[in-house]
Structure formats: structure tokens, C-alpha cells
Amino acid sequence: MSDVLAVADHRRGELRSVSYELLTAGRELADAMDGELHAAVVGGDVERFADRLDCEGVDAVHTVAEGEEFNHDVTAAAVTALADAIDPDAVVMPNSVNGLDYAPAVATRLSVPLATDAVALDYDDDLTVTREMYGSKVETTVEVTDEPVALTIREGEWAAADGVGDAAVEPFAVDVDESSIRSTVRGFEEVGAGDVDIGEAEFIVSAGRGIEEEENLELIEELAAALDATVAASRPIVDNGWLPKNRQVGQSGKVVTPTVYLAIGISGAVQHVAGMKGADTIIAINTDPDAPIFDIADYGVVGDLFEVVPELIERFE
């Protein structure tokens, strides 16, 4: 038997959507390996979570009732113990912020290879993991020459599992040594909405690294004023302190769904796209014709923003 163990992701009382994507990735891999799919959830309302995770194709759901919120010490210990018990050929975990907070420790404890941020998995005697390098400029395949293997999968790359399965729900007791708990979650904070909620904006003009200098933000603000749009930005602009965090679009910032999203000097890293792909019309201005932003844009100009934007402002003033 070559089983697969897929570990769900939850936060503040809800399963995160990647949990269901993990089940699809896990089922595909289990089929290719001719094994069973075991799902696991550690902490939180495990019975309710197990009920949700019992989708079509899931053979068993293991619940570890330890704590309310995610704690990496508990999760790493529980997943390692479960892997020892089930002996899967692959442990599939989310490439979320919390997934990356315990998956490496699972790999070191099990002494197995670790491939993170997989966007595709193929199994034909050996496992081949597709992952990106240099942002998303290069796609690589990586052969994993030994099993078991620890994997994390990128969110949004697999369809969510659905349907209702008939998996056995099996509580799993883990003896978590108190001295091994070295971190305590004290609470959560939402990044403040501040003066504006870009999540509500109808038109967004968004600036990226391509604007080069803080002074050039004025040009973006002028354009936004001319278009009656809201100013937003990609991560580097916020990291530099040029705009506050509540203006950041992307995985760690806000998800926006405007009628028009005008991306200026934004390359379109996957973390950014996660926050704006729901816009009705996406327009990009970028000097690099290979920039991934053009993969998602409806309209684009391959050109110098410092030439195009002033012309555009003039037309709307």
C-alpha cells in the first residue's frame, strides 16, 4: 500500500479552502500510487471539521483534538505521530503561512525529502513535483527519488474536493510533551482599514515596483484622481513604507474585486494575483512583455509607465 496523508488547514474556527484542494491533490496522488487517502485535522472543532473533510474519495479522517487554534509545536508532533502510525508514502500539507510553520519540522523529524510550493504532481514510479523558480519566471520539475516524501501544495492550484464520502472518522491521541511546546498564540489582529477600504473600491489604480521611486507615487495619485479611482499597491510599495498596509493587494493584504483594476509597474507575482484576479477588467502597463501580469490581464500596454500614464491623465482631466 502506498497511502497519502493530507493535512487540513484551519484558522479561527474555519477550515481554509486549501484544505479541500489538498484532498483533491491527495486523491490524485493516492490513485497514481494505488493507495488510500487519509485526511487529518489537528486542533479546533475537529468533529465539525472531520464532517466537512469527509468528501468523495477520502478513505479515513483522523482527528487530533489538541487545542483550539493552530500551534506549530502541536501540529508538527501530531502529524509526525500520525505519519509514523499510518506509514504513508506522501504527506501533503498546505503551502500556507501556517503550513510552512510546521511542514519543514515534519520532514526533518521523519527524515524525508521536502518539496514545497508544488503547483503540479505526477507519479509514474517516481514522484515528479512541478514548482516555480525566480518568482514565476521559470517552471522546474523536481524528481523525488525516495519515498516517503513531505510536500506542500500552492493554494488555488487544485480544484476543491466536494461530494460526501463515507470515511471512517478516527480520533487519534497524541502524547504532546509539555516541554516541547515552545510557542503560545496570544491572539490575532486584523490590519486596520484606516482611511479607506480598497476591498470596496469600484475602480483601482495599483502601483508596483516599476514606479521605482517614492516621488513617482504622485503620478499614480494624479491618475487615480483623474479616473476617480482608489490607489492601491503591490507588496514592495508597502514594504518600502510608501503606502500603508491597508492599501496592499494580495495574499497577505486585501482581496479586491473592483470593476476595473489598472496595474501599473506590477509584475504579477502569484501572491499579488491572488488578491486581484476577481476584478472584472484587468489592465496592465509594464515594460516586460513576459511579466506574468499579462497572463491575467484583459488589456495591456507593453511600455514605459512614465510615458503612458501622463498621456492617460491628460485624457481624463
Partner: peptide, 30 residues
């Protein structure tokens, strides 16, 4: 146990309408 076995530029999935020309011309299209 990890071995690089392939490397490629991702195929562009771009369905974008790209405007060409001078800054003035592309701004007019936009």
C-alpha cells in the same frame, strides 16, 4: 533525494489584448 529534472519558461496563458504604438496611441486605446 531531490533532483532537478526539467526547466522551462512557463507557457504564456495571456489572452490579453495588447495595444501597440506610441504612448499617446496606447493611452487613447486605454
Amino acid at each position: 533525494d531531490l533532483t532537478l529534472s526539467g526547466m522551462a519558461k512557463p507557457e504564456s496563458e495571456s489572452a490579453a489584448t495588447l495595444f501597440e504604438g506610441s504612448a499617446g496611441e496606447t493611452a487613447a486605446e486605454l
